[in-house]
Each structure stands twice: as structure tokens, then as C-alpha cells.
Design a protein around this nucleic acid. Structure first.
Lengths: 156, 156
DNA sequence: GTTCTTGCAAACCCTTTGCACGTCT
DNA sequence: AGACGTGCAAAGGGTTTGCAAGAAC
């Protein structure tokens, strides 16, 4: 049983509020997807989640997984990242606030970092444009000072 | 004839340096792709560029367009953005420095903005992690205060 | 009972790849 | 001449869609 870092009840509540507000239905599948995500403490993509749920005996279709991930992103429970050539990756907004990604342009290595000043910028920019800020996704593209080190790390 | 905001010579030089450094060949196709991009003052995706070039009578294959866009991104002449459900979008790094994107989670509207403080953060973070910063892509997810206004603008 | 959602598989789109031909060095 | 790049069309992978069956309201 994985460590439960997140408040599943709060997430369920947030999801329920969203579904009611948008007049979507409360299906078991939607809550099962959210429950499984809450137990994951990492990035994941749609297919990983689909496989994991079905291996665990929870029968959910790919279509439902994709559809539910979309809803969870729309209500800001998830953040969706689109890295370079990869499939879309998701993670709980609450999981690791303020963290972003730096990618090496030579080897594709991805480094996570935190920088709280980005949140301030995000909030100010959104306010200036008349929007209510929800989340963000920042990718910094950079290169290793030493290509050899970088190349070594490419074997991720 | 479109306005020429960018210094094509400088871009050609930058590309030539990169190709030499990486031991890639100086093909006519690669320079034609760059030339066409320099004449565009906007975001574009690979297929748009492919169609545009071929309609203009320049016969270049999709494979070459994709391959060249990849090279131009690697040498930092282009920045590659991966927005929500869309295909990859590119633009000249030099075109509009420091500009990023805010997307409305309700209607998908995309607003461009400039904020120079992001560059400072980018440079500091990269330096702290031991990387040399090249570019970045920041997406802020937010919602309109007035959903009706937002919905109206959804018809983009 | 009606409408929305699910599941499945096929369709879809964007991107990459294999191979033969052409071009650069 | 040799190696690399191009063009074409087909393959590939992730995601969406159409339709019939099932669940929510």
C-alpha cells in the first residue's frame, strides 16, 4: 500500500464540486481514476495509469482514462506537462507546488527544480491580464557545461 | 513580400556555425527552410511550413522540414512550444524575446505576454544547476473572471 | 425513460522511419 | 567515391471518435 501523502477526501470533494458545477455525472470510474492518481507520488502518462489500473484488477478503458484526465486537468487537480517528444505527463497540482523543469538540449536530461518567485510572476501576470491564475508549466532549455557529463546522463 | 524583421545573414551564419560544429552538411534544403522561417513573423507548425513552401513552389519534403526544424531548435535559432492538444509550434528565438503564453482553461484562448523577470530567474536557476541557459517556455494556466467573455473569445 | 458515460476497436493526426536516389564533401 | 541527406510512402505511437451497451439522473 503506497504512502498516502495527499488528502483524498479533499480531492474527491474538489472533483465533485467541479462535476456538479459543470453538470457532469458522478461515475465510479471517474472517482476510481482519481483515487489511483492520489496514490501515485510521481509524474505519469495516460497509458501508464491505464495499465496500472488494469493490472491491479480495476477494469477501466483507455477512453475513460483519457477523458477523466482531461476533466481533472480542467478543474486544476492535475497539471498537464508536454515535454519534448514525449506523451503528455500529468501530476497532482498539490503534489509539489512551484516545481518546474530544466531540460538539457544536448542529451534530453530533465532536472526538476523549485523556485517560488515564479509563482509571484505567474500571479502578477495573470492579474494584469485580467485572469485568475491556476497553475503553470515552465521549461528551461539549457546545456551542460561539460558535454561528456551530459552525454553520460543521457542514458536515463 | 513580407516585412523582414530579422537578420537573415546572422541566422544563416549561426546555422552554418552549428552545422560545421556538428559535422552536418550544408544542404540547400536546410537553408531554404531557414530562409522561409525568417520571413514568417509568427508561430507556425511543421505542416504549415511544409505546405507554405510547396505552395510557393519550393519542393521540400515533410521529412526534411521536420528534420531541419529539429536542427534549428537544437542550435537555439528556434524555440519549440508544445501547447495543450496541439502539434508542436515553433518561432524564432530572436523574434520576440521574453514572451510567454497564458491559456484560459475554460476556452483555450492563448494570450501572449512579456515579462523580463522570467529571464533573470531562468538564468539564475540554470546557473545554480550548473547549466548554460538557452531559452525557455512558460505557460500560465488561468481562467477568465467572466466566463461569458471567455466563452465569447473561444471562437478563435 | 432519457441522457450521459463507458468500452472497444477503428480512425486519426502528427511525427518518424526504411529504402532508393540524389547531393555534398 | 563515399557518406550523408532527401523524398516518398508506409509505419508508428499517442489520442480521439463512433457506436452499442450500461450507468446515472
Amino acid at each position: 500500500m503506497p504512502t498516502q501523502n495527499v488528502d483524498l477526501e479533499a480531492l474527491n470533494q474538489q472533483f465533485a464540486d467541479f462535476l456538479r458545477r459543470k453538470k457532469y455525472r458522478n461515475t465510479q470510474e471517474r472517482y476510481r481514476v482519481l483515487e489511483r492518481i492520489a496514490a501515485l507520488d510521481r509524474h505519469f502518462n495516460a497509458d501508464e495509469l491505464y495499465l496500472e489500473m488494469n493490472q491491479a484488477g480495476e477494469r477501466v478503458s483507455r477512453a475513460t482514462v483519457y477523458s477523466t484526465l482531461d476533466l481533472l486537468t480542467k478543474c486544476n487537480i492535475l497539471v498537464k506537462h508536454r515535454f519534448q517528444g514525449e506523451s503528455a505527463h500529468y501530476e497532482l497540482s498539490s503534489r509539489m507546488p512551484n516545481h518546474d523543469h530544466l531540460m538539457c538540449m544536448e542529451c534530453g536530461r530533465i532536472v526538476e527544480f523549485r523556485d517560488t518567485s515564479i509563482d509571484a510572476i505567474r500571479d502578477r501576470v495573470a492579474a494584469d491580464l485580467g485572469f485568475k491564475p491556476m497553475s503553470h508549466s515552465l521549461q528551461i532549455f539549457a546545456v551542460c557545461p561539460n558535454p561528456l557529463t551530459c552525454e553520460f546522463n543521457a542514458g536515463e
